[in-house]
Design a protein around this nucleic acid. Structure first.
Lengths: 328, 328
DNA sequence: CTGAAAGCGCTTACAG
DNA sequence: CTGAAAGCGCTTACAG
């Protein structure tokens, strides 16, 4: 049997109340008493049961973290940062990989509720899952608008997109093509696209965007679209891809076509995870401030959970930076 | 206030006992009663409190997962797979990024104990942290020997190393050099090295291993050693790197020296994560069976936790496979 | 400064 | 087939 507070009390010759008090540093307890209790705890190897504690206090210090999957380096990195900030502040994280499956995500939400998490951070694109009318669970969304009452933290996608296009323009490109995911998907990448279109028009250039269906839809689809782009435009000078995977695919196809990068074609990606920068440092890309996003999300959530600040409908946009590789 | 079982009872006009029974499907309850209770739960939007449940049952269905960091694609992928297998079997995972910091890891262990997790999966290299004498918490280690009583699941590193060297030999390489992390670190990569040395000797060739200090020790160190290798051996035909990051660094340095790959030099890496295969599919590498490792670890842990099988001191070794890229 | 009692939300022997 | 009571391990008003 695991020792409980009763056992400590017995060993120390005091009441459970007193043990609890020294454990929580509450009320006045003589130094001598404290020592006695601590010694007893050591002796019988006592470890408090946080379940019981949480049940009484109605606070678990656990948050739920819903991501599509930590297999994706962006979310792998975000998860590590979020968990680290949480642990720094005394919170733990229950990890949920929704695999972008709405049904699974729904179950996770219920699971988190049953487990009495204090709050949740969602990085997932499924809308319409939450019962907003009575969603009183503190929540922060990463880069997605779930409802009016749920604050959003994310990188400044417009600014990031703008930066990418500016860099290409400054490098002398005029004919710049944009590659993005499907527009109807309400992803943050839409703002990158918007920025691209705005800047192009501002500069008297015509924006051309190719849309790539979601990865898992069909494997070769991405390559097909990229080839279509090259076939339809022989004189492309720059490509701004809405994520690094697309940028890499472009680079690979360009190589096959013996197009020299960056001499004949300049390419800029988006995300700039540590992973990409380690594996493929040559890729010029817009770097999302992952660690900042994690930190803001955690503080914002803690503010809500601890009632420091009333449910804020804030939107926090952190600026992206540029990673200069060799593709521009 | 969140509704509790009492409220459901009141709404349904029965006793809390009955509500609990229908909730747990225990004992005989008439269909009619069941319906009444379920309706009441819907009505008042009841969600069971698993904290209270766990407290009574002494079972949380939560496991702890300790990894160095999910920023590393290998662990990001492993984490996703482990969590998915857990969730499939009704378990949840508390994620802990130890950052390879022994002190932090120790705190995580205590936290997990306080939270009454049913078991833990550790992927971390810190030995001597656990009090083995009274470590009665079900545990499975991924690819590391923590103590005699803790089962290990991992890829078959010897077999993987062997495969890498055989591939290089079959491709006609004779002068094959191995790059590995520091030997004194008791990592699984040691078996890859052993395999390399054995196979080389078996084939009448002399093994040459260069050791690369840990990444974070010094940034440029890796490149320095690789250059040293190239400088000291002008006629290298093959390189077997103990992980993909090292393999990529070798490829980059080779390119700088205008050494043609695979014509003049063949390179094989190790790990073959989804991430690497997506970002850099050209790299030939030994692919660890991440998903299999995750599945085995989870089942083994569940066996221990549910007492299906007595604490096994098993060691499960899953075979690696080869990813044929273009560097061999 | 310390202790006995009630309660956090649930479950399960034990009666009826 | 259903309910009252005790208990999971802790904490906190409330007395003394």
């Amino acid at each position: 049997m695991k020792p409980k507070i009763q056992d400590v009390a017995k060993a120390a010759g005091v009441s459970p109340t007193t043990v609890s008090r020294v454990l929580n540093n509450r009320g006045y307890i003589s130094e001598e008493m404290k020592k006695k209790v601590y010694t007893a705890m050591e002796e019988i190897n006592y470890i408090p049961n946080d379940l019981a504690r949480s049940l009484y206090n109605k606070k678990t210090y656990i948050i739920g973290l819903i991501v599509p999957t930590t297999k994706n380096p962006f979310f792998g990195e975000l998860t590590a940062d979020i968990e680290n900030y949480c642990s720094q502040r005394g919170y733990k994280a229950l990890i949920c990989n929704s695999l972008n499956n709405a049904e699974k995500e729904k179950q996770y939400w219920e699971m988190l509720r049953r487990n009495q998490v204090d709050g949740v951070i969602v990085c997932t694109y499924n809308r319409g899952l939450l019962d907003y009318n009575q969603h009183q669970l503190p929540t922060v969304a990463i880069d997605h608008y779930l409802s009016k009452s749920i604050p959003v933290v994310g990188s400044n996608n417009y600014q990031g997109g703008e930066m990418a296009v500016q860099k290409l323009l400054k490098a002398g490109c005029r004919k710049i093509i944009h590659l993005n995911g499907p527009k109807e998907l309400q992803t943050p990448a839409n703002f990158r696209r918007k920025a691209y279109e705005d800047i192009m028009i501002e500069n008297g250039l015509s924006p051309i965007t190719y849309e790539i269906p979601e990865d898992f839809v069909e494997a070769g689809e991405k390559v097909k679209i990229i080839n279509k782009m090259f076939d339809e435009h022989s004189n492309i000078e720059g490509v701004f891809a809405s994520d690094d995977m697309i940028a890499l695919a472009v680079i690979r196809e360009a190589e096959k076509r013996h197009i020299q990068i960056p001499e004949q074609l300049k390419v800029v990606g988006y995300d700039g995870t540590e992973t990409i920068r380690t594996i493929f440092p040559a890729l010029s890309t817009v770097k999302q401030p992952i660690s900042d996003i994690a930190e803001s999300a955690v503080s914002l959530l803690i503010q809500q959970m601890e009632g420091t600040k009333p449910v804020s409908k804030d939107e926090i946009r952190l600026n992206a930076t540029f990673h200069s590789g060799k593709t521009i």
